[in-house]
């Protein structure tokens, strides 16, 4: 096929559009000036200020705990769901389950947040649990949308997997449980890792749902960042953003490598299975 200049130009412009704001944010996080966009000299003082801010550190710690718990719970539930829907061809309510697992992927955050909050309030007045809202209710909410993402990633891996390996183990007398632990689990391990990482980052990133279901004293990192941005520009947010972007870039790099080594089609293929 003849290659015109149109495609490369469009691609370069597109990537520039995606990256220019992020790159400029990282550069200006090293700016000495309080006026974030006026360069006056190199400095790491905003990073220092950030590390001395107990509110940000506390929120970051809380967010990491919530992300760890939600990603881990979602990993278990999402994987079980993927096995159920890929391996069990016929059971009652299968179509319903398939619908329920993929709906949170596209459900607007405000609806998810509001509906879970109203559920928690209604449950509290009916059965007294959960008593008030806070870390626990955020974990439940995050687990619910993260399991949908874990499901998508694990599901595409299970579909790609050679089922004859499981059949061979079964023929050799292994029980279904042993087949799962010895055969299936090692094969889908890369998908489990990227599913967990995806859940972890999504939980860490969530602002809207957390705002609805959190309680007094349980402000997550995005909630603190949002209120800071609302008040005006603060250079320490730039420093914080740069740290987060750096960590994410590292994480995505590792996850992509794992996926590329374990799978014929790269991570993009499974990420886009989201539809």
């Amino acid at each position: 096929m003849r290659k015109g200049p149109f495609l490369p130009t469009a691609a370069i412009l597109g990537f520039a559009f995606l990256y220019a704001p992020i790159i400029s944010l990282v550069i200006f996080s090293f700016n000495e000036n309080r006026l974030v966009t006026v360069w006056s000299g190199f400095s790491v003082k905003w990073y220092g200020e950030l590390l001395a801010d107990p509110q940000i550190l506390g929120a970051a710690g809380l967010s990491l705990q919530i992300a760890f718990a939600s990603a881990s719970l979602a990993l278990v539930l999402g994987t079980l769901m993927a096995i159920a829907l890929v391996r069990f061809r016929r059971f009652r309510g299968r179509t319903m389950l398939a619908g329920m697992i993929s709906a949170p992927l596209v459900m607007p955050d405000v609806i998810t947040g509001l509906s879970l909050l109203l559920l928690f309030v209604a449950m509290e007045s009916l059965i007294g649990w959960p008593a008030g809202r806070g870390t626990m209710t955020i974990i439940i909410a995050h687990t619910t949308f993260c399991m949908a993402y874990v499901f998508v990633v694990v599901q595409s891996r299970l579909v790609d997997m050679d089922i004859s390996l499981e059949e061979a183990a079964m023929d050799l007398g292994a029980t279904p449980f042993r087949v799962f632990v010895d055969i299936t689990l090692p094969i889908i391990a890369p998908a489990l890792i990227s599913g967990w990482l995806l859940g972890f980052t999504l939980s860490l990133d969530d602002l809207v749902i957390s705002s609805f279901v959190s309680g007094p004293g349980s402000s997550t990192l995005p909630m603190v960042i949002f209120s800071k941005i609302k008040l005006g520009v603060s250079p320490d947010v730039n420093a914080l953003a740069s740290i987060i972007i750096g960590v994410v870039a590292l994480g995505v790099g590792i996850a992509t490598l794992l996926q590329l080594r374990g799978q014929k089609n790269p991570v993009g293929a499974s990420a886009s299975e989201i539809m």
Binding site: F15, D205, I225, N238, G268
Partner: peptide, 25 residues
């Protein structure tokens, strides 16, 4: 693969921070 990763990277990066990056822009 390189280009795909360049597309996926922002997809994993904080949504809120990307919107914030735009305000600075």
């Amino acid at each position: 693969n390189v280009l795909l990763m360049l597309v996926i990277l922002p997809f994993w990066t904080s949504f809120l921070l990307r919107v914030y990056a735009l305000t600075g822009f």
